[in-house]
């Protein structure tokens, strides 16, 4: 807000570098692509994979797999099928790697992947298709699950060809980027999509993985004060009473918030943190309290 606090400050990124590096008010420092802790899958701040799931009009793909998990009525028959190729390019590949005895290189299979087939990350599988925004492209799906075969079994394109288990349907490519910008198109990827699949941070992971893991978004030491003698006092975010005496984390310690309490009333116990301190209870929640 402006210093008059009357109307929002206008700060509208105009060129691509401004768009890429812009951190809107309220977002934490790791909210940009170059600062985010996106070193693991799905990442901590957002799950980028989810952005690709609806790139093809009419169907929704699993974020990490070529399985169609939802479809609009016109394409209802595609639900449960597997996408094999788009516009002539494969979206799956075979996993080749060292054998378990490290003596050779071979097709790596497992119970989940009996044919050694894995779906490429969508950012790779869909790279070429992005050039065909707005156009229909040929999408090759498995025609039906093979007899006595669970729908989640991954099959290779070659096997599908051999079994004549392929059906080609033309689907239109939706825009991934808003035209002429570096912004992800909100009509394709609505707000919330890239965070909805993250592990529930307010539950087990947030309790177990303390601040050195959630470096960006989970505080540890809150309500910090420096006394006149130079002593630093404050609370562990997970401690029940805000005594100013930091309690070393141990989930068996009765002074700490329990798992169950976190699930039931996290917002009352943890408090929102504003400038490193518990927000006053007088600040209303930004959403209705979940009756559960």
């Amino acid at each position: 807000m402006s210093d008059q606090n009357k109307r929002p400050t206008v700060l509208d990124p105009r060129n691509l570098s401004a768009q890429l590096h812009y951190r809107p008010a309220g977002n934490p420092p790791p909210a940009t692509l170059d600062t985010t802790i996106g070193n693991t899958c799905p990442g901590l701040e957002f799950d980028f994979r989810a952005a690709w799931r609806t790139l093809l009009t009419g169907i929704t793909l699993l974020e990490h797999d070529n399985l169609v998990i939802a479809a609009e009525p016109a394409y209802a028959a595609l639900k449960g099928r597997r996408l094999l190729r788009v516009d002539g390019k494969p979206v799956i590949t075979k996993v080749i790697g060292p054998s378990t005895d490290l003596t050779t290189t071979e097709l790596l299979t497992s119970e989940d992947y009996p044919e050694g087939v894995i779906t490429m990350e969508w950012s790779n599988g869909f790279t070429d298709v992005l050039r065909k925004v707005g156009q229909p492209v040929a999408c090759e799906f498995t025609a039906c699950p093979r007899p006595n075969q669970p729908e989640d079994e991954r099959i290779s394109y070659e096997q599908a060809v051999k079994d004549k288990n392929i059906q080609t349907i033309r689907l239109q490519v939706r825009p991934f980027f808003t035209k002429d910008t570096a912004a992800i198109e909100p009509a394709t990827v609505p707000a919330g999509v890239m965070t909805q699949g993250l592990c529930s941070p307010w539950q087990n992971d947030y309790r177990e993985c303390v601040c050195y893991y959630w470096a960006s978004s989970r505080p540890d030491f809150v309500n910090v004060d420096v006394t006149p003698t130079g002593e630093v006092r404050g609370d562990n975010w997970m401690q029940r009473d805000r005594s100013g005496q930091y309690v070393i984390d141990n989930y068996t310690d009765s002074r700490m918030i329990t798992y169950d309490e976190l699930f039931q009333k996290w917002e009352e116990l943890l408090k929102f943190q504003l400038a490193g301190r518990d927000a006053p209870d007088s600040i209303p929640l930004p959403f209705p309290k979940d009756p559960a």
Binding site: S2, L11, R14, N15, S17
Partner: peptide, 11 residues
């Protein structure tokens, strides 16, 4: 970063 923004007179 050669970042270019539209701003208002206040800012």
């Amino acid at each position: 970063g050669s970042r270019l923004f539209r701003i208002d007179a206040d800012l």
